[in-house]
Amino acid sequence: MVTWPAGYGRRVLQQVDSTMAEAARIAPELTGPEWILALQQTAARGRRGRAWHMPAGNFSATLVLRPEDPPDVMALRSFVAALALFDAFEAAAGTAQGLALKWPNDVLLNGGKAAGILLENLGGPGGHLAIGVGVNLIAAPDADAVEPGAVPPVSLLEESGMRVSPEQFLTLLADAYAQWETRFVTYGFEPVRRAWLDRAARLGEVITARTTRDEVTGTFESVDERGNLVLKTSSTRAAIAAADVFF
């Protein structure tokens, strides 16, 4: 039976503007890692300030940590969180069939986006790290709510028939995250990187990475030791630190 991990706090809020905003408010008072779950959000947001649509019954939570790592190492926890999400989905559905991880921070179910991750540094160097997680448990946003060409959203209920409450999913996710965090802190990024690649969507296939400045299309070769997406094009091998990926 999955139980709540020792050393991690837990807050469940009926309503809040966003769990990321709440994380920033409470971070100074925390003495250890803390999960914040909101059953309703009024001003949720995703990567690059995009609105995050949250139908009732879906999952939105933020983990607040204070790692003693430089910013580039702290950022690798997006892969830790992705692996934890994969395990939580597998535990909820009873199978890993149809699950895959999309660089940099999405979980796919039967080819559609079922979850996303957002990392924010709170308070600058030496401050807290907020890991925001949004999961379509019950319903997916309308297709017109996502960027044209992006992976269409799906939900766990629609794709698997499994109905899981946000509170139940939080326990699965918190337990899985604690285990992956321990591995990351103990052994470094390499085992996390290998595990992530084992679950990666479209590895070895041609994909497109779109940054704020340009677009690169090439074969998805790997993720390097810094978490960069490695694409092999006709003329070079590109290591991309931040981008939106299109299939």
Results as ranks from 00 to 15, higher is better:
A81D: 00
A82M: 09
L83I: 10
L83T: 00
A84H: 06
F86Y: 15
D87G: 03
A88G: 08
F89S: 12
E90R: 15
E90C: 11
A91Y: 04
A91Q: 14
A91E: 09
A93L: 03
G94E: 03
T95W: 06
A96R: 15
A96S: 14
L101S: 09
W103K: 10
P104S: 14
N105M: 02
D106P: 03
D106F: 03
V107I: 14
L109T: 10
N110L: 11
G111E: 07
G112N: 08
G116D: 14
I117Y: 02
L118I: 02
L118N: 12
L119W: 06
L122S: 15
G124D: 05
G124H: 04
G124A: 04
P125E: 01
G126R: 13
G126I: 06
G127H: 10
H128I: 04
H128K: 13
H128T: 05
L129N: 14
L129S: 14
A130E: 10
I131R: 05
G132H: 09
G132Q: 07
G134C: 08
V135M: 10
N136R: 12
N136C: 13
A139Y: 02
A140G: 06
P141W: 00
P141Q: 07
D142N: 10
D142P: 03
A145M: 10
P148N: 07
P148V: 00
A150Q: 01
A150P: 00
V151R: 00
P152T: 10
P152G: 01
P153S: 08
V154D: 06
L156M: 06
S160D: 04
M162S: 15
R163F: 00
V164L: 00
V164I: 12
V164Y: 04
V164S: 06
P166S: 01
P166E: 01
Q168F: 13
T171M: 07
L172H: 09
L173G: 08
L173V: 03
A174S: 05
D175A: 15
D175R: 13
Y177Q: 05
Y177K: 11
A178M: 03
Q179Y: 07
W180R: 15
E181C: 10
E181M: 14
T182Q: 04
F184E: 00
F184H: 11
